[in-house]
Design a protein around this nucleic acid. Structure first.
Lengths: 136, 136
DNA sequence: CTGCATGTTCAAGCGCACTTGAGGTCAAGC
DNA sequence: GCTTGACCTCAAGTGCGCTTGAACATGCAG
């Protein structure tokens, strides 16, 4: 296939052109050259963008994704570390969901009086926070 | 119990004083008054802060938490809506974790050639993004 | 040759959840 | 009375992931 321009890549990938330029600046994607001023991209860049989207959806930062993707293939060791992170995150969210579920159905009139809920709330308080993530 | 000052509340809750002022400005917590310039808080405010921490840990924004908490008790209907959101999020993360897990163990030398992985990646691409969340 | 759509650069802005810093105030202890 | 230190206000800054805007350039159609 021939190289495509930024709006084509944008349409294929669902990523805005401004974001594509931003990604290129960050080194997450590369353009193969220019026609005049205009960037050209290899069509496979769209797949790389899906990969990036996957990482973003998992809550990874662009820098983390860049680490995973730099090199000829995905860095499996790093990937495993990220999966471990994701595991912990899912576990935490699941625990809290159970707590919230109980809370929503709890018969105690004033929820903050429910002892089970109070336990969950306390547990949440004693947890370290991590990164910010998940775009709009 | 008597009202406590901001540093006391900060220690009890693990939330920095600057954040407490910020939360008050946002209406998430209230101070009961002042001694001189210094804010005073009811000791129960610490529990409210745990509640806020719980919401944050679930990935809710401060505004969403404010909605849940405004009123004499937690708004159960809103809570159920937030739980549904959380459900979807957990489901999505879980699906992606399975994909990543497979990826990490996949025998195909160039991971991006693995058909199973490619399916997962594609699925992630066609997903709408939501909010940013999860502090440092 | 001209017009215009579609690109380009670079700097600044945004949303969220805070943090930091400068400069001020006040209660208590010496 | 004076210093100290904890607290105050208000404005500005931070980090992430982009978006927006102004000013400019280029390829192609008519």
């Amino acid at each position: 296939m021939f190289d495509i321009d930024i709006s084509e890549l944008s349409q294929r990938s669902g990523v805005k052109a401004s974001a594509l330029r931003f990604y290129e600046e960050k080194g997450l994607i590369v353009s193969t050259g220019r026609r005049g001023l205009k960037r050209l991209f290899a069509p496979e860049t769209a797949e790389r963008l899906s990969l990036i989207a996957l990482g973003r959806a998992c809550g990874f930062t662009l820098d983390e994704i860049a680490d995973l993707l730099d090199g000829p293939d995905i860095d499996r060791a790093r990937l495993r570390a990220q999966i471990a992170q994701l595991d912990r995150r899912i576990e935490q969210l699941t625990r809290m969901r159970e707590g919230l579920r109980h809370a929503a159905d709890c018969k105690v009139p004033i929820l903050t009086d429910c002892p089970r809920f109070r336990r969950i709330v306390k547990a949440a308080g004693h947890h370290r926070r991590r990164r910010r993530a998940e775009p709009v």
